[in-house]
Design a binder for these strands. Structure first.
Lengths: 231, 231
DNA sequence: CTGCTCAATATTGTATACAATACTTTCGCT
DNA sequence: AGCGAAAGTATTGTATACAATATTGAGCAG
């Protein structure tokens, strides 16, 4: 009995998802079943099924009889996402204070300090995944609420489709780190009110950055063709 | 050009979803592709694709090489769902106060009053859909946040899989209605703090009811066979 | 050159066929 | 009878085939 058999659908799903998140497939481009199935040495059936999964996660948008496209989020949708994300993170704070042990908080703090060192030593690799996310994910995890975690991750992966100029990220690294440390300290002390306030400001800041960096590239159609061609 | 052409997948999806939500397919039973496709006069392909959609919405759980089953939620998962739901509804309150017009609130109030009349005249039909949901959905909609709305609806449909004895619902009708009216009044006055507090208590009450009604039927395996057979 | 029609192509949507795994029943043994 | 192996059946997973729709491009009229 093959224990660790993995389905072809899973393979395609992971392949597509990582390519989308790595922005190898840019928002707007069409995911052609034939092409993908040839690339992976499979047929269209598992590819279709993987695409349906991605569609339900919001990374892909499909139009009947036209195909599947990497989702292009509007400014409004991004704002909506941030509002939901804020709601989830605030709830996570409440739960974290109630449910997390000193040890767990210590280990997050340690990770923060290591990150601070790396940043100050300027070993910032451009391909380093956003450290911002690590902290927020850590807080979310403290909630011990599996559903909260998975909804948050779905939102987050959608937000990560929005390209942010890396300079924009780098500039905020240190400041964000300070805020993270403060929030964590407040969680440790069980000071929900202040933690909330700080987190809200922190998220608002992140939102502002993303939206302004969006404005920078306004009009910059992603190559590969938009969803609808003018022709 | 067929404008309103609807895909077979959509048909299957809607059919399955409504049967699941109507508890025609009870939690735990297996969704057999062949059987469903024969019932609908289609083949397995669109059935499979519809099932994948439902799986991503949490209504169905699939096991590789074993099949798809209507999800059975554990007590823990229900608690998790309620926590997320609370987070979303609280956020919705904030946004509702900021974004909703007097007219919108008036129309919700009118609906509440009509419902009150119907209840007092004892015209409660057993197949009436839970009025509790109407109010909460109305509040959620006031947020004007499409993402918030859709995440909430997904959660809600999952929660509706949990069978609640109808007497349990009926008993709470009037009391819930009063709470709804109070919450709405507070939203109208922009009193976020008090609205939040009331809503939290209100949801806690609903959660308590659901969990206790769950306890009633503990051990009552859904007919049709559980996910894993003992043999 | 522009705009149109219509054939040719590409792509998706659904059906069918085959393969692999899981479940069931039968049969044989102790 | 009780247990286990093995054949038979059912069900899912993947591949292929066909149908329907959309897109492209050539040809042609104005």
């Amino acid at each position: 009995m093959e224990r660790n058999a993995v389905s072809a659908v899973d393979l395609v799903y992971e392949a597509l998802k990582s390519k989308i998140l790595a922005q190898e497939y840019l928002p707007g481009i069409q995911l052609k079943e034939m092409q993908i199935s040839k690339e992976l040495g499979l047929t269209r059936t598992p590819v279709r099924e993987a695409i349906i999964r991605l569609e339900r996660e919001g990374l892909v948008s499909t139009v009947y009889n036209r195909g599947a496209f990497v989702t292009v989020f509007s400014t409004r949708e991004i704002e909506d996402l941030f509002e939901v994300r804020e709601a989830l993170e605030i709830k996570a704070l409440t739960l974290a204070i109630r449910r997390s042990s000193r040890d767990e908080i210590d280990s997050i703090e340690k990770a923060l300090k290591q990150r601070e060192l790396r940043i100050k030593n300027l070993v910032i690799k451009s391909d380093m995944h956003d450290p911002e996310l690590d902290f927020h994910l850590a807080i979310i995890r403290l909630s011990k609420n599996q559903r909260l975690i998975s909804v948050w991750q779905t939102m987050q992966s959608q937000l990560s489709l929005v390209r942010v100029t890396s300079t924009m990220i780098n500039r905020r690294y240190l400041r964000a780190l300070e805020e993270h440390k403060k929030i964590l300290a407040l969680v440790r002390n069980g000071d929900l009110r202040r933690a909330e306030r700080l987190l809200i400001r922190h998220i608002a800041c992140a939102k502002g950055n993303m939206l302004s960096s969006l404005a920078d590239v306004t009009g910059g159609e992603p190559e590969g063709g938009a969803i609808r061609r003018s022709t």
